[in-house]
Design a protein around this nucleic acid. Structure first.
Lengths: 300, 300
DNA sequence: GTCAATTACGTTCTCCGTAAGGATG
DNA sequence: CATCCTTACGGAGAACGTAATTGAC
């Protein structure tokens, strides 16, 4: 029970040409070898498939029955090989990415568009998620790779630092802080603070950054940067967002100021499961992400 | 581009067990050999199909893609092999036979019924045709085998004599011939003669038999024995039919008498194309026909 | 240290090619 | 006798098993 694709090809070639010698050439073997191949095939399937003498070659009734199966087998083999080949050549495939909302809004769209130009056959899926969920999705295999400010467990994940993003203060133009050339963490003391969602990385980083600074919790916690901007604009307080999200808070009367502290940098890692290899498409995306930093949008 | 069924099986075994050692046992090879098989498979398809370390085995994204194809390939191979096996075991198949009306009516039905009991899965097709058409159908491959009174060209057909059928005179009870103990050809002199169809073997044999005897042509030529009987019964003449067709001419007022002449025997051959082998089903039918002569219905 | 996959290496067997053989028109 | 398929036989390479190695827990 071990038909090789080679023997199937031999069968099909002989069925079509009805000539051993010509079919042999098509299979790139000597007539002798080809004859033996047909013999082996017939032995394996347990029945004679061709009636032949030195002049004529024709399918036996069993050969006719086998023919349809042989065509299907050959087609399936060919399709499977072609499918994998297309994927390794990046002409087909799928890659799914999990990324924080800031990157999903500000940087990835253009990167993905460029990728799509190079590889129009590859289907890209993007999930904008908060930090915890990002690692979760990677671990569960729901996405191929993730971008995140937390690098996660080194036993479970392969991680590479992509860049560091500066955190920005968002406040009203008429805020006292708006006139400062450089903003330090201490300046935030006693200010009303609007949080982004608790499971997001900014919130978590703020916890560390401001542990020594007494801020006032406005009690507001929002998921969308637009909401954040609206609240600040209306005087509910101030907030801090990563650099790439600054433009999402753009609106008349608001100001964004870089925070001048060594710790006010948010790292962005690219992450995959350690025990799973990437598909060709995902690997290509990983490569493109690595060599396409957000460019002028960042300071180092 | 030469996937062997063996490598496909290895893939499926490993996909299912997720253990090299166990999958190896299932494929009846050593763990080492199995590891090499997976390696070869991955080399042939051009991509890694399993992520593995010494502890865990899992499909790569490409492996998942390949999986569905592998299942289909294995299923097609299995189905093709099973199909041929069923046929060689006579559990499936088809056999088509061409035979003269007399045999198709008198002998073959019971023979076919017996065959069907032994091989209920085999589909039997019977064509009752006149002699010329019978050889034609065999030559064109429209039937697997034929029964015929003419043996045809020996270069084109394989032929075996099954038996000889005596020819019978059919006449009215009040016919002068009805009183004769033995009928000779000479007795038919000057009698009105109703012919069976010109392309049938009886007609052709009559031409030879009666070449030295002057008969009168009634001008009637019929295809069905029932018609023949009706015409004779109504006094249009006499006719000659093969022994197995005698009972088809049975009706009150008619008599059938064997013709006592060495040449008044009609041979029945079983015939197949010389350059085509029979399917297993057709071969089984051939064998059954050979060893199931029409028995008591004939004299030698 | 243990267990499982892999690599190294020698053996066996499959498969191919050259050359001789045989059948057919 | 010319053509085409088949058989014979020897060599090259594939595939397997045993045993040593690597790697993960």
């Amino acid at each position: 029970m071990n038909l090789s694709g080679r023997l199937i090809d031999a069968f099909l070639a002989l069925e079509e040409t009805r000539r051993f010698s010509i079919a042999a050439r098509r299979c790139h073997v000597s007539p002798s070898a080809f004859s033996q191949m047909i013999g082996r095939l017939e032995e394996k399937v347990g029945t004679r498939l061709f009636d032949r003498d030195t002049r004529n070659v024709a399918l036996t009734p069993e050969g006719e029955v086998f023919s349809s199966g042989a065509h299907r087998i050959a087609a399936e083999i060919h399709a499977s090989m072609a499918e994998l080949n297309e994927r390794s050549l990046l002409r087909k495939g799928r890659v799914s990415i999990a990324a924080p909302p800031s990157l999903a809004a500000a940087w990835l769209p253009q990167l993905m568009a460029n990728f799509k130009v190079d590889h129009p056959g590859i289907d890209i899926r993007l999930h904008d998620v908060v930090s915890d969920r990002c690692l979760d999705m990677i671990a569960r295999g729901e996405v191929d790779l993730g971008l995140n400010a937390q690098r996660g467990n080194d036993l479970e994940f392969d991680t590479r630092l992509l860049f560091n993003e500066r955190l920005y203060l968002i406040c009203r133009e008429d805020d006292p802080l708006a006139h400062l050339k450089q903003i330090r963490l201490s300046h935030l003391k006693d200010r009303d603070f609007i949080h982004t969602v608790r499971s997001g990385s900014v919130w978590q980083q703020m916890q560390g950054l401001l542990s020594g600074t007494k801020i006032r919790d406005s009690g507001l916690e929002v998921a969308q940067f637009g909401t954040l901007a609206g609240l600040i604009s209306s005087g509910f307080g101030i907030s801090i967002v990563p650099q790439l999200a600054v433009y999402l808070c753009n609106r008349p009367g608001l100001l964004a100021c870089p925070i001048n502290a060594r710790k006010a940098l948010r790292p962005i890692y690219i992450i995959k499961r350690k025990d799973r290899s990437l598909s060709a498409a995902a690997q290509a995306m990983w490569n493109q992400i690595e060599k396409s930093p957000p460019g002028g949008m960042l300071d180092k």
